[in-house]
Simulated assay, not measured.
Amino acid sequence: MQNNQQQNASKTNAQKVKKQNQQSAQGQNYEFASETDAQQVRQQNQQSSQRKQQAKGQQQQQ
């Protein structure tokens, strides 16, 4: 009965969430990071930034 009090109405395991939060704060949670290629994201951001600058330059010329 004590264990049921640790879980709220949504059946969330509070201990598990606390552990995940602690790991995330320490940079140990790679669950989402492993799905993301940081180098690719940087490259896409750079390309987007360059396109914005080019578009801005073309607007100023008109």
Rank of each mutant, 00 (worst) to 15 (best):
G27C: 08
K16Y: 06
R51I: 06
T12I: 08
E35H: 09
Q39D: 14
G27D: 10
Q40V: 05
A9C: 12
N45H: 11
Q20N: 03
S10N: 13
N13L: 11
G57T: 05
Q39Y: 04
Q39G: 14
Q23C: 07
Q50Y: 14
K56A: 15
Q26L: 04
Q40H: 08
K56P: 01
A9S: 13
A55T: 01
S48E: 15
Q28W: 06
Q15E: 06
Q40L: 10
K56I: 08
N29M: 02
A55M: 12
Y30T: 12
K52G: 13
V41P: 01
K52T: 01
N45Q: 11
S34T: 07
K16T: 03
T36E: 06
A38T: 09
N21Q: 09
N8K: 05
K56N: 10
Q39F: 06
A38P: 03
K16A: 03
V17R: 04
Q43R: 14
Q23E: 08
A9T: 10
A38C: 07
D37T: 03
Q54C: 11
A38G: 11
R42A: 05
G27P: 00
G27Q: 03
Y30A: 06
D37V: 03
S10A: 13
K18P: 00
S34V: 04
V41C: 08
K18V: 06
Q43Y: 09
Y30R: 00
Q47K: 15
Q15A: 05
G57S: 10
Q39I: 01
N8V: 07
Q28A: 07
Q20G: 01
N21T: 08
S34Q: 15
V17E: 07
S34A: 06
N45P: 00
N29P: 04
K56W: 11
A55G: 14
N13E: 15
Y30F: 04
Q47D: 15
A25K: 08
E35S: 07
Q47S: 15
Q23V: 03
A9R: 10
A38Y: 12
A38H: 10
K56R: 14
Q46C: 13
Q39C: 09
Q54N: 15
S49I: 02
S34P: 09
V17M: 09
K11G: 05
Q28S: 06
F32E: 13
Q15F: 04
Q44H: 11
Q39P: 00
K16C: 05
R42E: 02
T36G: 02
Q46I: 13
S49Y: 04
